[in-house]
Each structure stands twice: as structure tokens, then as C-alpha cells.
Design a protein around this nucleic acid. Structure first.
Lengths: 187, 187
DNA sequence: GCCTGGTGTGTACGGTTGTTCTTATGGGCA
DNA sequence: TGCCCATAAGAACAACCGTACACACCAGGC
């Protein structure tokens, strides 16, 4: 039995777009287990690539996390601005905002979890704070299509609170309550 | 030179109340460096006790973190309820709430940081989520001294959003804006 | 058809972590 | 007074971490 001089198996090869796939997988891992559990090894396992592939494509773990959160913000902010652009007036904008909250963010717990994880990680990581601030300013700009700057800022704060509240509370507010709170604050 | 058969120095002893002091030191470390950096060793260094002392007094790191956050919530919730009890009517309660926000929470970055760190940690840790939910229900009960339940819940969400917003934004809302937003939502 | 450089792969290293364990010690009760 | 156990102390361990590196491979330009 000397037949196996090559114990190592060299399986898959030629995987173009792997870098992109790693960014998506990173978001999956963060959503499922939190940013603290998003280690090189956990992401490599989830993406089914060897460990070394991560440090090849991304200079550091922070760089990878920043790329992942940037992609997520890009997606959500774009979707939200579309909703605001489509709204004909202020009341419709508030309804669209309520729809964005109950549908996009709170409906899928994935987006909600990613938002909170980003908030948390950004509190200590300057590179991620830039991503968060970009998100804040973009969403405020979208709101200002229909609201004055002061109200837009208040609404933005309420929205963040609702997100957090929904993530942690046992009995979060339902869609009707959210809609009514928004109209009371900005109607 | 065989004169030193006892290389280990056994310094301090008899430290009653060390357990309490460890809880306070844990909060200090979390406030200064975040919950992710609140390791056994970091806390032991800050409290100037040996490493083994931590696992002697607390069965696990999670248990210690829960004890620390519980103490913090106890302090803040008690202070807030005092403010609500002292307010004679609804308008005074809203002003007192604004004062609580701008003075207690947002004024000292310590309380603000601890709140956000707790939010984050609670998202993944069931033991800490219980602490958060206790905080939420206590503060809502305090609010209901002057507000109807529905409004209390909305105000609670806005407050959480304001806390998060202040922690992360480059230009947080000032005291006057906060006061006006509260009165608009619940006045 | 070669050659080459970007890509893929596996392993190793130094450091940090939570937790366990053995040993010392002295304050307070019998 | 003398003993004893709750407390204090420090070393040790296995697991896991980010990162570095040496080597294998093959698509595409010559």
C-alpha cells in the first residue's frame, strides 16, 4: 500500500468572480451569525474556498467587511431612493417610507440584522463609520425630496429607533402603528 | 546566586467587595473600548487583579457581562423613573425626557456608549437581550405615567433612534431640536 | 507550442482567548 | 488560641484568530 504519495487533493479551480462571491458570502455570514463571528475561516467555510483565498483577494479582514457593508448600503439606499423618487407628494412619501420600513427592512430580518450589525461595528471601526455616515446622508437626501431638512432629520432618527426597536423588542410595532407615528411626526 | 527559591511575589490580599468592583470595572472597560475588547484579561488588568480572580467570582464571561449591564440598566432606569415621577403633567414629562436625553444619556458619552454596546451585544446574546427588554419595559412604564401606551411606545422608539443617531452621526441633533421633535410626536 | 504571471491552495506561525487547576494564605468562627 | 475554608494567585492548556508564505496550476499572449 504505497500507492498514495499525493495525500493532498487539489479540487476546484478557475473560479472567476470569486471575489464578488466572497463579498456576498460575507454578508450572509454576518446576517446569520453576527460580525463578531465573521472570521476568515467562517467565511471561507461558507463560501467553500480555502483560507488563503481570502487574504489573496482582500488585504485584511477589515477591508473585506468594509466591502461587504458598502455593497449592502448601496443596495438598500438605491432601493429607498427609488421609492422616494416615485412618490408624488409628501403624504405618499411617508407611506412609501412606512412601506420601506415594514416591507424591506423589517419584513426580511436579514436587512434588519445587517443594519444593526453595521451600526455596532461602525461604532468602533473608522472605516465602517464612513460607510454608515454615507448611508445616513444618502437616506436623508432621499427624504429631503419631500421633507424639509429639520423634519427629515427627525424622521431619520425615528426610523433608526424603529429599526432597533424591532430588532430587539418582543412585540414590535405593527405596520399601522409605524405609519401613524410617521404621519404624526411629519404629517 | 541560589538565593531566590521563591520567584513569585504574592502581593495584595484581603479585598472584600472585589466582586462588586469587578462589575464596575467591566463597565469602565466596555465604555472605553467596547464589549468586544472586554476580555477577562483586559478587565483583570484594569481592576488590577489576577486573571484567575475573574473566573472565581463569575462562572463565565457572559455572566460577568450580564451582571455589568444589569447594574448599568438599574442605574439609568431608576434615574429616569425619578424624573418621570417628579413631572407634574404631560408637557413637563416631555421636557424631563428631553433633559434626560440631552443631559444624562447624550451629555456623558459614557452612558451613550454603554447603551449602544448593550444594544449590539443583546442582538446575539439571549442573556443580554433579557436585560435590554427589561430596560425597554421599565422605561415604557415610566413614560406611561404621563402618556397613553401607544404614544409611549412611539416615543420610546424615537428615543432609541436619537441615541443611536447621536452616537454615530457627525452632526447630532441639539437639545432644542430634540425637545421640539418630542413635542411634535407626543405633544 | 511554450512560457509566464495572475490565480488558487495548503500549511505554518505568533499571538490572544476562555477556562481549568494547583497551590497559598489569613480572617473569622469554635 | 488554633483550625479551616472561602478567597487569592499564577501557571498551564487547547482552541481559535489574522496573516504570511511557498508552491501548484492554467488561460492567454507570443
Amino acid at each position: 500500500m504505497s500507492a498514495a504519495p499525493v495525500p493532498a487533493r487539489r479540487a476546484r479551480r478557475h473560479d472567476p468572480g470569486r471575489r464578488d462571491r466572497l463579498v456576498d458570502t460575507t454578508l450572509d455570514v454576518i446576517a446569520a451569525q453576527g460580525v463578531a463571528a465573521a472570521t476568515h475561516r467562517a467565511i471561507a467555510r461558507a463560501a467553500d474556498v480555502p483560507l488563503g483565498s481570502l487574504t489573496y483577494h482582500f488585504g485584511s479582514l477589515t477591508e473585506l467587511l468594509a466591502a461587504a457593508f458598502t455593497r449592502h448600503v448601496e443596495t438598500v439606499a438605491e432601493r429607498f431612493d427609488e421609492r422616494m423618487r416615485a412618490a408624488p407628494d409628501r403624504a405618499a412619501a411617508l407611506d412609501a417610507l412606512a412601506g420601506h420600513l415594514t416591507g424591506d427592512l423589517l419584513g426580511s430580518s436579514r436587512d434588519l440584522v445587517l443594519a444593526v450589525e453595521l451600526y455596532v461595528a461602525a461604532a468602533r471601526n473608522p472605516a465602517l463609520r464612513a460607510v454608515t455616515q454615507d448611508w445616513m446622508s444618502r437616506s436623508r437626501r432621499s427624504l429631503e425630496r419631500h421633507l424639509d431638512p429639520v423634519t427629515a432629520r427627525e424622521v431619520d432618527a425615528l426610523v433608526e429607533g424603529l429599526v432597533l426597536h424591532s430588532a430587539l423588542s418582543t412585540d414590535p410595532m405593527d405596520a399601522a402603528q409605524i405609519r401613524s407615528a410617521l404621519h404624526r411626526l411629519a404629517g
